[in-house]
Write a protein that binds this DNA or RNA. Structure first.
Length: 84
DNA sequence: TAGTTGACCGGAA
DNA sequence: ATTCCGGCCAACT
């Protein structure tokens, strides 16, 4: 199980209406300081089973998204009730 | 193999 | 509050 695979599993396991930060994911994956790598991975490995829109920055900012931009990401989160 | 890039983070200016 | 800078890590070239 590589770091990348762990990250995928973790993100795939995020419940509806919940949000995790890249930092949190990196931590759970075993590398507390690999937040940047997490984003990199998500960017290149998008899978429909992986709700990357539920992963945000630790600042509370939504961050980037490769499927319609931040707007779409925000929309999804709002629809799930994760944010206002 | 080495250098660059980026969906990040935290602290400093 | 905003912008800048160094550090981290995987993927890309």
């Amino acid at each position: 199980m590589t770091f990348t695979d762990k990250v995928k599993n973790i993100v795939a396991a995020i419940p509806k209406g919940k949000m995790l930060t890249y930092k949190q994911v990196a931590e759970k994956a075993g590398s507390p300081n690999a937040a940047r790598a997490v984003g990199s991975i998500m960017k290149q490995n998008y899978d429909p089973k992986i709700p990357c829109h539920r992963v945000v920055r630790s600042d509370g900012i939504i961050g980037e998204y490769n499927r319609g931009g931040r707007e779409e990401k925000i929309r999804k989160l709002k629809r799930e009730g994760a944010i206002k």
